[in-house]
Design a protein around this nucleic acid. Structure first.
Lengths: 417, 417
DNA sequence: GGCAGATTGTTAAGTCAACGAAGAAACGAA
DNA sequence: TTCGTTTCTTCGTTGACTTAACAATCTGCC
């Protein structure tokens, strides 16, 4: 329950967000006193995380010394593990991608084998660009579905039953010799956007993540919001048509069923002309490949493909608006593989919906953007997770309070007042 | 940016949540050491906020001394200001209602006049039960619509234009001589449930508030979540039918239009038999009175009234499920005047929906409850707001970081690394 | 050139929350 | 009565942050 988010973390965060800033700038931005900033900055410079990088114009007196992250001083590895593929990125301290590789997914392989492979590939990633292992802070591993962020219990998505209860974090930690952080991929994507996407200071932002499913990650004042069981942001099962078709989740009219990539592909396949135009001939290809084909057709100008995607976008925009209303968002980023492909079609429709009908639009607009790294957003976010958690020894993270009623032995009848 | 949520606040929170607890229990629950608990508890006892109230059975050695809030040591006033009526409650330290009165609403009266009246009525409330003014911590004032929680800029709901930019907080502070805290009524209701509704420790909970509109308040780890402009929880404009009717907010198929009290009353009026049965004769009565009439008809067994309310409940349940999915809620409380009247009809339907289709139900259920004080929930929450904010001098509340780019004069080209 | 005034940054001393260790007090059981 | 156990308190220390005084650097003006 100990707080102390540590001035160090706050200062680093501001330096990163500002890019270049002086000590006086830090004083204004953080609210700390000059004395504190002075000592904290000296420590950061001693650790090599920050460098002085020039001087500003005078404002009437001594010129300010400008500070910057020392981008090349530390690195982090981000791994996005999915059954379709594994994406690895190596980022520097600023969250910029230094190297990246993609490899086949986990498939039906044994967890232990996959972990060994990942360790090898992480090493290859680092040596490939000549980054020393001891300058790497750790590995962030994200994957779809809920998973416990600390120890590494397991993933429980549709087709990865083997991974349930497998101590993924510990295993990868042993195999790589680096600290490992686990999290959900949509959450990570949101953090990645916050970290490297140029989202300023302490916004309340969300990342709408579309892969084969739809999810959202939430970042509140620079901290990811996970909910009570790590499943927060489950926007795919937002109801956008109470009388709509059934969903496997038990409800009706979920946005995923009405507008997800699977629904888009199904609608396209139902149209023979479009199926031919987009070469959706066989049934063997993956949903993402088919979705990409439909998107290409739409970009070529195929009217029925465009209609299908716009219909999808309108549903997703409605869900996004509901999310923005409930969270009172400032920033919404579209990201993930599917938006990497079709983002240009979705973006204007979501943006229009939020301009027109966001409840608090009188107070402030919602800034809707397309991620610049939509395809690798989760992997980048995984690395950002490491940067955030490993950079500063964050004391500890919220000790769980024990069960109160159990903690107390049977009380006697009161004898005092 | 200074942290230190202060051990005092944490300890008080745990004592309140537990009802009765020993120092050792506090050690386990908060994670602080015995030394810290010892000194903090002594301070709290010195201030009169806590009393020793008995002993527990021995667990092999010295018997634990049990602690309790000194409920009668401090009080707080909660005011729910609405154009239809003003509700006042006086609560003790535990959030229990000691006195309450209801008075006519603000109507079209001048703000200054209303503030004077409120000050008089607050005084009457306190003297009525013989509570001294210096044992009252402050006044919490909540009302529908967004408003800035600190200074007291204004409310901007439909029909209260006069109040815009009126310095409500300062005016009431001067008029009563007590500290004033302002907030949104749905948010306050959520906090009130957290505070007095027996919601244990640090849950993630929401209050679904239905008056004439629909809103939600969010409490995350005991802290209200307000969003970037204080409008968080705006669930009334959640889309539950993307092809539904237009809403004044600019969107279509908002739950408020489809299922809010206004919609319920309109549907009932459209049915001549029901209109007669529920005596919805004139058009002059208020929406809430008509809604109450429909609810009474339903409880008497009128099938069409029941059908209308169940239809409404189903839409609201869908919105509640979307909210629970996105926030990964643990607890959802139905509260507000409309649920005070019709909660017994809505509760089972919302509960069923969340049992059946809440996304993370495998990990944990959502505990759906009906508030025990639905009619006065907001006023109680307003008092809780005071208890929370005024009880412990919370250092300060998050200094806003200034605009970074503006804080820095034009930087010169870098000269360092 | 040189000095006044402004602004930036550092150092030193003090404050406060929380911790660890050791002691004091209360209790049950032998 | 004595012992071991558990509860609670006291004391000295640590670490983060602040206030206050000071040193360093720059502009502008004579």
């Amino acid at each position: 329950m100990s707080q102390h988010a540590s001035s160090k973390a706050a200062v680093l965060d501001v330096i990163r967000a500002a890019g270049t800033i002086s000590r006086v700038g830090l004083i204004n931005a953080t609210g700390f006193t000059g004395a504190t900033i002075s000592t904290v900055v000296r420590k950061l410079i001693d650790e090599g995380l920050v460098v002085e990088t020039g001087r500003a114009e005078s404002t009437g007196g001594k010129r300010r010394v400008l500070l910057q992250l020392n981008h090349a001083s530390r690195y982090a590895v981000g791994v996005h593990l999915d059954h379709a593929g594994i994406t690895y990125v190596l980022t520097n301290l600023g969250g910029a991608v230094v190297a990246r590789i993609s490899r086949p997914g986990a498939g039906a392989t044994e967890p232990a084998t996959v972990v060994d492979r990942m360790a090898t590939e992480v090493t290859a990633l680092m040596t490939g660009v000549g980054v020393d292992r001891d300058r790497v802070l750790g590995v962030g591993l994200v994957s779809p579905g809920p998973l416990s962020p600390t120890t590494g219990m397991g993933l429980t998505p549709p087709a990865m039953r083997k991974w349930e209860d497998y101590p993924l974090g510990q295993a990868l930690e042993r195999a790589t010799g680096l600290p490992v952080v686990l999290d959900n991929d949509a959450t990570a994507a949101a953090l990645g956007e916050h970290w490297s996407g140029g989202i300023g200071g302490t916004a309340i932002s969300a990342a709408l993540y579309m892969g084969t499913g739809i999810g959202a990650g939430l970042v509140i004042n620079g901290v990811t919001y996970r909910g009570s069981s790590g499943n927060a942001g489950e926007i795919g099962h937002t109801c956008v048509d109470a009388n709509g078709p059934d969903c496997w989740c038990g409800a009706r009219g979920c946005v995923e069923v009405l507008a997800g990539p699977t629904a888009v592909v199904a609608a396209a396949r139902a149209d023979p002309a479009l199926s031919r135009a987009a070469s959706l001939t066989t049934h063997s290809r993956s949903v993402s490949a088919d979705f990409a084909a439909v998107s290409r057709a739409a970009r070529r100008g195929d009217p029925s493909a465009l209609a299908i995607l716009e219909r999808s976008a309108r549903y997703i925009a409605a869900a996004a608006r509901s999310l923005a209303n409930v969270m009172d968002l400032e920033v919404l980023v579209l990201t993930g593989p599917s938006f990497a492909i079709a983002g240009s079609i979705y973006l204007p429709i979501v943006r229009e919906e939020l301009d027109r009908a966001f409840f608090s639009r009188a107070a402030h607009p919602v800034d809707v953007r397309l991620s610049r790294h939509a395809a690798t957003a989760s992997a980048i976010g995984a690395a950002a997770l490491v940067l955030q958690s490993e950079l500063v020894p964050l004391t500890e993270g919220l000790k769980l309070p024990e069960n109160l009623s159990a903690a107390e032995p049977a009380p006697l009848p009161a004898s005092g007042t």
